[in-house]
């Protein structure tokens, strides 16, 4: 077990915690927090895939972009930008979902007077 595996283990642990909270908790706010934690776990995992030890930011200077070879050397020493772009998008989507869930929770509290999922039971069958 090398030290580089540790962040992946952190992502795994976050994922398990998030899933546990979503499945086991009855409080709406806690369920929302569980979804948020799960979201961060997947984002962290995605970000780690593009990470390179000691890599630089993937922005090439004009000198580095001068020829195909220098550019390849630069790219070999920089982190992968694609997962970063994906994570940004995924964070924005997660924000949208989170805002929607919170507003639903507020409306639910207005109607039912509680955040307890076990007492919000209109639908059966």
């Amino acid at each position: 077990m090398t030290l580089t595996a540790l962040p992946y283990l952190l992502a795994l642990a976050l994922m398990i915690i998030g899933l546990y909270v979503v499945v086991a908790k009855k409080n709406i706010i806690k369920i929302i927090l569980g979804v948020a934690i799960l979201d961060y776990a997947v984002n962290l995992f995605l970000l780690l895939l593009g990470y390179r030890d000691g890599g630089t930011a993937p922005i090439a200077s004009p000198q580095q972009a001068a020829s195909s070879d220098t550019l390849a050397t630069f790219a070999a020493g920089s982190v992968d930008p694609v997962p970063q772009a994906l994570v940004l998008t995924s964070i924005v989507i997660g924000l949208g979902c989170l805002a929607l869930m919170v507003s639903l929770a507020i409306r639910l509290h207005e109607k039912f007077g509680t955040f307890d999922m076990t007492r919000i039971r209109e639908l059966k069958g």
Partner: peptide, 17 residues
């Protein structure tokens, strides 16, 4: 806008009251 919408909320106010 999201913040405004959420800031309307007052704890303890629900319509069945």
């Amino acid at each position: 806008g999201v913040f405004l919408a959420l800031a309307v909320f007052r704890p303890g106010r629900h319509r069945e009251d």
